[in-house]
Design a protein around this nucleic acid. Structure first.
Lengths: 160, 160
DNA sequence: ATGGATGCAAATGATTTGCAAAAGG
DNA sequence: CCTTTTGCAAATCATTTGCATCCAT
């Protein structure tokens, strides 16, 4: 991510990366990589596990966690805490756009934040300081446009 | 946080807020608020609990968690997952600058990110979209300046 | 053959919760 | 008084880990 968005690893690249780092190409790992490459959106470990079960997968949740951890270390997979409660971690194959969300305190909705502004600001800052940015994740809370409007109206009917 | 940094609540403001929302001014809550107002930096629940014990505090960890949750709902306290592992949550009194950190994948150091750039980008984006921003938190990982330089040197001695 | 990988079940660790006792308004 | 709050201990829940077995290489 020196300046451009990283690319999605091809199956060959992924396998080479595993190999070169001295890891084995087990059917479980290959299936997981395949599922992640197909299903580009963020998924949590449980969802990935259930996907694997549906696709002939002979695996366990522990293996899913261990594999995801390995993939993240190798840079094949990105992990994020996407919900504001940060209860569980979400994973996806490397190479997508960086997403940012605002969680509305009024209605609970998650509003996607235009990533370009934040990404550009972060990247130019990093460039100026000789920093290599690998991942950037932001969490916002506040009030979405509708709730902001509603609150502004209510401001006329003061309380205390 | 319409445009300016929010202010630290005074003891009176905090007590009024609790009162008006129908909550009781128990010694445990008052002590916690006091500790947080004094100790402006981010602390985790355990640290806050131990601080309370040191200061004559007759309380429990459960009460600390419950109070912190209440304070956050009332906007008196801000909660953040500051470390990239997101193991535990950190709390501080509302009103400080928003901090952002980059965690170096090389040496593990946490480099503070100049908050102004991100904050300005986020604020102007929010303003344009009629959004009220209450909190903004970002997590970065990458390589700090030293590790970036070291890696750039090593790039001459190619591997695969 | 053999060290890394798996599956299972048990462990972990931060946070939450049920409930009876205590205490704020 | 009466409802909220507390303290304790037990419960949660995502994730990790020990260990015996299995299997890529």
């Amino acid at each position: 991510m020196s300046d451009r968005i990283p690319t999605v690893p091809t199956p060959e690249e992924a396998e080479a990366l595993l190999r070169n780092a001295g890891h084995r190409l087990t059917p479980q790992r290959l299936l997981l990589l395949d599922l992640l490459r197909t299903h580009k959106t963020f998924l949590d470990a449980e969802q990935i596990y259930e996907l694997a079960l549906k696709h002939e997968g002979d695996t366990s949740l522990a293996t899913v966690y261990r594999s995801l951890q390995l993939f993240v270390e190798l840079g094949l997979v990105e992990a994020r805490y996407l919900d504001p409660e940060h209860k569980r971690e979400y994973y996806r194959i490397t190479g997508g756009l960086e997403y940012h969300y605002l969680t509305c305190r009024g209605c609970g909705k998650m509003v996607p934040v235009d990533p370009e502004i934040i990404q550009e600001a972060a990247l130019s800052w990093a460039r100026e300081h000789g920093i290599t940015l690998l991942t950037a994740h932001a969490c916002y809370t506040g009030y979405c446009p509708e709730c902001t409007r509603r609150r502004e109206k209510n401001r006329s009917s003061r309380s205390s």
